[in-house]
C-alpha cells in the first residue's frame, strides 16, 4: 500500500438508541451503541473491527452501509457524503458496498435456488438483459468461490455450512463491489472450514482488488486477515492501526488484556493469573464517565474517571488512553 487512497471515511459517527421509558416513571435512557467514531478505510486493505459482544462493532459496520441510520456524524464513500443520500441514490452505492453475514443458515432464503440467490442482485440491478447471461455469470461466480456449477438448481439446505457461506460470498461478489463488509463470516464455522473460507476471502481480495471491513471477535482470525485493526470497547475506539504493531506492542491496556485472554496453542505457555481481566462489560446505557474502560482497568487513576482520553498518535497506530503502556 504505497499510495493510501481513502475509500470510506467516518466522522464522529454515533448511534444512540432511546429506551422507552417505563410508564413515565423513570427518565429517558439512552444506549450509547457507537460514540464518536472517526476512521478511514483505505483502498485494497482489510480493516478489522475487534471487540467483545456489545462493543458496537456490528452496529458500526452496518451504519457504514446505512443499514442502520446514524444518530450523528458523517460517512464519506469515495469522497461523497452518503449520509444525506436518498434511498434511490443509496441503491447505486449498494452496487459498491456489499455485506457477508455471520450465520449462513439464517441469511439464505430456504425457498430460493442457488441460481436465484446468487442471481438476485444481478436481476435487481438489471446488470444483464437476458436470463442466459445472468445464469452464465452465476455459474462463473459459483466456480470462483469453489462450488460446482452443476449445483445451480439446488436449495440451501442441500449444502453444508461452509458451502452456504461460499454462496453468501458469491452473492456479495456478484455486483463487483469495492467494499465488502464481512460481519463475523467465519464464527459459525468449524476450524477446518474456517481456514478454507479465510483463504478464499484472501484470494478473492487479491484477484478483484477488494477492500474488506472485517468484523470479528476472534483475535487469531483477525491477525491472519487484516492489515489494520480497530479495537473497540463500549462503542469507542481504544486503539486503531497496523495489525503487527498492535499485536506486538499494544498501547491500550484493554488491547493487552484481550490479546492475553486468547488461549495459547502452546501448552508450555500457560496463561498467567495476573493477565486475566477481571469484571464484566459495563452497560452501554450508563457508560462510565471519563474513559469507558476505567471500571475494569487496573491502571485507572483519578483522571481516567473524569476526563475522556483522546486518540493520540503513536508509532503505527492511535490509542486512546491517559496512561498508554510502555510510554
Amino acid at each position: 500500500m504505497s499510495e493510501k487512497e481513502v475509500l470510506l471515511l467516518t466522522r464522529n459517527l454515533t448511534k444512540e438508541y432511546e429506551l422507552k421509558n417505563n410508564f413515565g416513571i423513570r427518565k429517558k435512557q439512552v444506549v450509547h451503541a457507537v460514540s464518536d467514531v472517526s476512521l478511514e478505510i483505505y483502498k485494497g486493505e482489510t480493516l478489522s473491527l475487534v471487540g467483545e459482544s456489545g462493543c458496537g462493532k456490528s452496529t458500526l459496520g452496518r451504519m457504514m452501509m446505512r443499514l442502520i441510520e446514524p444518530t450523528r456524524g458523517q460517512i464519506l464513500f469515495e469522497g461523497k457524503d452518503i449520509t444525506i443520500y436518498s434511498e434511490k441514490q443509496m441503491r447505486q452505492i449498494y452496487k459498491k458496498i456489499q455485506l457477508i453475514f455471520q450465520d449462513p443458515y439464517a441469511s439464505l432464503d430456504p425457498r430460493m435456488k442457488v441460481k436465484d440467490l446468487i442471481g438476485e442482485p444481478l436481476v435487481t440491478h438489471k446488470v444483464y438483459p437476458t436470463k442466459e447471461e445472468t445464469e452464465r455469470k452465476v455459474k462463473e461466480l459459483m466456480h470462483m468461490v469453489g462450488i460446482r456449477p452443476e449445483f445451480i438448481d439446488r436449495y440451501p439446505h442441500q449444502f453444508s455450512g461452509g458451502q452456504r457461506q461460499r454462496i453468501g460470498i458469491a452473492r456479495a461478489l456478484a455486483l463487483k463491489p469495492k467494499l465488502i463488509v464481512c460481519d463475523e463470516p467465519v464464527s459459525a464455522l468449524d476450524v477446518s472450514i474456517q481456514s478454507q473460507i479465510l483463504n478464499l476471502l484472501k484470494d478473492l481480495q487479491k484477484e478483484f482488488d477488494l477492500t474488506y471491513l472485517f468484523i470479528s471477535h476472534d483475535l487469531g482470525v483477525v491477525h491472519y486477515i487484516s492489515d489494520r485493526i480497530c479495537v473497540m470497547f463500549l462503542g469507542k475506539v481504544c486503539e486503531i492501526g497496523d495489525t503487527r504493531e498492535i499485536y506486538q506492542n499494544p498501547k491500550h491496556p484493554y488491547t493487552r488484556f484481550l490479546l492475553d485472554a486468547v488461549p495459547n496453542m502452546d501448552p508450555e505457555k500457560k496463561q498467567k493469573r495476573e493477565n486475566i481481566l477481571a469484571g464484566e462489560i459495563p452497560s452501554a446505557v450508563n457508560p462510565p464517565s471519563g474513559c469507558r474502560f476505567c471500571t475494569r482497568c487496573p491502571y485507572a487513576k483519578e483522571i481516567c474517571r473524569k476526563e475522556e482520553p483522546k486518540l493520540i498518535e503513536y508509532e503505527g497506530r492511535k490509542a486512546a488512553c491517559h496512561f498508554p503502556l510502555g510510554e
Binding site: 478454507q196 487469531g220 491477525h223
Partner: peptide, 13 residues
C-alpha cells in the same frame, strides 16, 4: 488450520 497470532503465512486447508 487455526490462525495463530504470530505468523501470517497462508493457512493450511
Amino acid at each position: 488450520s487455526v490462525p495463530d497470532m504470530e505468523s501470517k503465512e497462508r493457512l493450511y486447508n
